[in-house]
Design a protein around this nucleic acid. Sequence first.
DNA 1: CAAGCCGTGGAGGTCAAGATCGGCGTGCAG
DNA 2: CTGCACGCCGATCTTGACCTCCACGGCTTG
Lengths: 217, 217
Amino acid sequence: MTAIEQAQARPRGTRLPRRARREQLLGAAQEVFVAQGYHSAAMDDIAERAGVSKPVLYQHFPGKLELYLALLDQHCESLLQSVRTALASTTDNKKRVEATMDAYFAYVEDEGGAFRLVFESDLTNEPAVRERVDKVSLQCAEAISEVIAEDTGLSRDQSMLLAVGLGGVSQVVARYWLASRSGVPRDTAVGLLTSLAWRGIAGFPLHGAEGQVQGHH
Amino acid sequence: MTAIEQAQARPRGTRLPRRARREQLLGAAQEVFVAQGYHSAAMDDIAERAGVSKPVLYQHFPGKLELYLALLDQHCESLLQSVRTALASTTDNKKRVEATMDAYFAYVEDEGGAFRLVFESDLTNEPAVRERVDKVSLQCAEAISEVIAEDTGLSRDQSMLLAVGLGGVSQVVARYWLASRSGVPRDTAVGLLTSLAWRGIAGFPLHGAEGQVQGHH
DNA sequence: CAAGCCGTGGAGGTCAAGATCGGCGTGCAG
DNA sequence: CTGCACGCCGATCTTGACCTCCACGGCTTG
C-alpha cells in the first residue's frame, strides 16, 4: 500500500501516535523523492502525499536534508546487508558471484525504487550525501575484494579495482535491465553476467596455474 | 589555461568577437558546473568566473538550462566519438576491448572533469538532460553490442546486456580509479579490466566451441 | 575632431520553495 | 460538565537565484 492510499484511507483529520506518523512520513517522502528527485521534490508535495500539512513534517524532521538522509541511511544499510548476506551464503566462489549479482538485481527491482536514492541521487554535491554514497560503495567493494584477494592472490589495490568493477557491472546492468524491460528474464540476465564475471575472475593467477591462460599484466 | 586565468589576463573591460566570447563563457561555465554541480552553480558565479556581467551571459544563452545543455551535448558527442574510434581502431577483438576501456579512462581523466556533467549530473530529473544521458549510454552500448553480437552469436537483447555491463565497468572503475588515487597506474588498471572482460566475453558460444574457455586469436 | 552607437555594468523585480506562527478540534481528567 | 493539553492546519515570511532595466565608455564614421 502506498502512502497516498494510506492517507486517503485515513482522511485528513486523523491523529496518529508519533512513531507511526513518522514512519508514514518517511514512506511518503520516499515516494516523492524517488519519483521526482531531491530538488524537484517540494516539502509541500511530501506533506500533501502524506495527507498532512507542512508544519507536521517539521515537527518530525529538522529539515528537508535530514529527512532525505534518514531515508538514504536506511537504504544504504539495506544494500550493504544484502551484499554481505549474499557473499556469506556459500563458500563456492562461483555461486558467490551469482548470489551477489542477484542481490543487486533484487535491490534494484524491489523496495519501491529506493535504489534511486543511492545510485541516482541528484544531491551528490551535498557532502553528507556524497559521504554516505561513497561509503556504502566502498564497503560493498571491500567485502567483495576480500574474497577476490583470497581467491586470486592479487594485491589489495588491484582486487579493489576488480571489486569496484563487479559492483559497478551489477548496479549498472541491473538498472538498465529494469529500465529497458527487454524480454530477458532476471534469471537469464543474472546468469549471463555471472558467466561473464566468473570466467573473468577465474582466469587470474591462482587459477591460471591450473587452467593456463594467456599473459596477464 | 582555465577560464579565470583568461579573464584575468584580459581585464574586465575587454571586447571580444562574439564567437570567442561564447567559447570563453562555455569554458567558464564548465569549470563552475564541474566544481559545484548544476544546482549550486549560480549564474553570478559563472559570469564572475568569466570576468563579465550577467546580461552578457543572457545575450549568448537563453537561460541556465540551455547553457548546461550546450556543454552536455558537446561532451556526450565527445564520449561517443572516443568509443567509436576505439572500436574501429583494430579488428582484433581483444585489442578492441582494451582500446575501449582505455577510451573511458582517458575520457574520465581528461577534459577538466567534464565527465561529471555526463556521469554525475545532478539534473537527471530534467527530461532534456535525462534524454541526452540515456541516449549516449545507449549509443555507446549499441556500438559495443554490435561487436559482441557478431563475435559471440548472442541475441540482440543479451549482447546489449553485456555491452551495457562493459560500458558500466569502464565508467565506474575509471571514476573510482581517478578518485581513489591508489598506486595503480592507468595502464595496469586498464590491463586488469581488459583481462577480466576479455576472458569473460571470450567464453561465450562462438569461442566455447573452439577453445573451451580461454585462448584464441 | 566630434558625435553617435552598441555593448557593458551594477542595481533591482519576481517567484518558487523552505521554514514558521496563531487558531482549532478532539479526547481525557477532575 | 468543563477546562486543559496535544497535535494539527491555514496563512505568512524570508531567502536566494534566475532573469531584465537605466547609466557609462570605447570604437567608428562623416
